[in-house]
Amino acid sequence: MSPILFWIFSALMLGFGAATILNRNPVASALSLVVSFLGLAALFFGLDANFIGVIQILVYAGAVMVLFIFIIMLLDLKAEQRRQINIPALLGGVAIVVAFTAQLVTVIRSYKAGNEPFAAITPNLPDAHNIGMTLFANYNLPFQVIGVLILVASIGVVVLSQRELK
């Protein structure tokens, strides 16, 4: 992947990620998140991970965020736009972010293996095939367990929302 494209898409992703938090309009926030996902997907495409990139778009940008926007539009949220800036909370947040970044930087700098050149990856395409083989051959049991877990969670949601209706 060309470094220029990498920087462009990284900047897109981070910029719109920031816009997600900074926007006061909920719909604008959600849409910024969508663009951020698209930037992320473009980075995956650049790494020849087409399958993950397309799933990123299909699942997150195309389905999950559409549902989010759908709900936001129906609720017509106005409270967020009226809220005042809370100075102590803002300062606290900034302090935490600075502390976390400092810690991250020190940890990364002390990690020696990070400076060593990465062993060349031999492209082993198609990647959908690779993912399928890895998931269903090597990690079949964890995969099934996660599936059951999600099933239980969704049944739980249905049961809980039914109870609230009564």
């Binding site: 969508v34 087409n50 397309v54 799933i55 559409v66 926007i69 539009m73």
Partner: peptide, 25 residues
């Protein structure tokens, strides 16, 4: 010529719904 043909079509056309949603909203 990508290895994810039909998925790509579905992914991009699922983004088309934003046009409709935003127009309506």
């Amino acid at each position: 010529n990508v290895d994810i043909g039909p998925l790509f079509v579905f992914a991009i056309s699922s983004l088309g719904v934003y046009g409709i949603v935003l127009a309506g909203w």
